[in-house]
Write a protein that binds this DNA or RNA. Structure first.
Lengths: 124, 124, 124, 124
DNA sequence: GTGGTCTAGACCACC
DNA sequence: GTGGTCTAGACCACT
């Protein structure tokens, strides 16, 4: 089940793409599996079909899904590449955040223990 | 010395505000000290004065600077509050990032060592 | 319907913000309802869109409205907080004014009867 | 003793004028009495003499002080007129404030009791 | 169509 | 010189 926040400042089409990617990464959508049709998802989220279309176009372009005319859109067999991409992205963000925190005067201990406890916590 | 990236997707006026804040946090701008005048900084960064104005308006509204008409803008005496705000903000981001990383399948060791080495690195 | 006074010494953008707030407080604009678009209101008041934008930016930052890109700006669900804020503000002003009046030699009866009759008066 | 707030957004020259007027109204400066010289007050408040000059020019124009070349500036014999002006001004403000409060949903009782207690309070 | 950002150029009050 | 407000016109991303 996908949920979006229309008030958020990250565009809806990107929110949807992120949700789908995270569903793939978490295994709740598997390679080869069909994802909801544009119209169906549009109805379900009460969002303009154009917006869904834009999400899917992005996923298609990055090889995360493939589409078969007349049948629908399916999760591609890219799981490892996808994981790798996401991982690199997260590491980059983490490096930036750490350096910013250092400059702002936080101690390394605070950062490490924050990461440690956040990792152990049960996800919401 | 302030540097900005006009191509970045974070607005110029916000980049400038962040730079000023980080200069205050790092101590290179002290409470009571004057910050560059709107026009001067505009010339220096080859940016429109209105854009600088917008940056300063934001800082003013948050009580980070105060302005005296005809004299200039000065760093307010909020250092502790500012540090606290920034710290809380960074910790929140770090928690989110950690949980996202966990869900994406990264190991705790990868995160901790990333933070550790990023912290030791010489800042650019 | 919003009216402004371009000659007033309170900036146009603030006049507009106040009008919107008072419309919310008086119930003529309800939470979730859309407020006029930037360009539309600009045309209607023959004011530059940037000025309207500045008004709305302030309301946005204070959580009084929220904006959805491509759709418009809407009244947030803050009515009680808003009422409380305004009330506290007005009471503070009233206290200051009263004390100033006392120091200037006005009698308490003059003040009370002024308030009383001003309150009964039909609003313009 | 006059005190000013350079950070305030009401101009310094106006702050000074207001202080002098309130000293006259409260009786601590009496008609015919000499007020501080421009240079003296400028030194005392560490303010540019031009600014003091502007204050005094305003007071002069409104007949609140008169100046004798080579001797200084003195409080005029206008006390009643001054009181009347100030009173009219305060009443006007009070009417506006009351109507705004009404529109914001405050009750007449709240306003009256606020005025009443503020009036009884010992001034700071 | 919508909001958001930016530029260029102007005017004002203040010090 | 300073900050603050406003106009006119442009571009962008989003729906």
């Amino acid at each position: 089940m996908i949920e979006i926040d229309k008030k958020s400042d990250t565009p809806i089409y990107e929110q949807i793409a992120q949700r789908i990617i995270s569903q793939i990464l978490s295994g709740s959508l598997r390679p080869g599996e069909r994802i909801p049709s544009v119209r169906q998802l549009a109805r379900q989220l009460s969002v303009n079909p154009n917006t869904i279309q834009k999400s899917y176009a992005g996923l298609l372009e990055n090889g995360i899904i493939y589409s078969i005319k007349g049948k629908g859109d399916f999760v591609a067999n890219n799981l490892n590449a996808l994981r790798y991409m996401k991982k690199k992205e997260l590491i980059t963000e983490l490096v930036q955040l750490t350096q910013e925190a250092k400059q702002a005067g936080l101690w390394i201990d605070e950062l490490l223990s924050t990461v440690d406890s956040a990792y152990s916590e049960r996800l919401i």
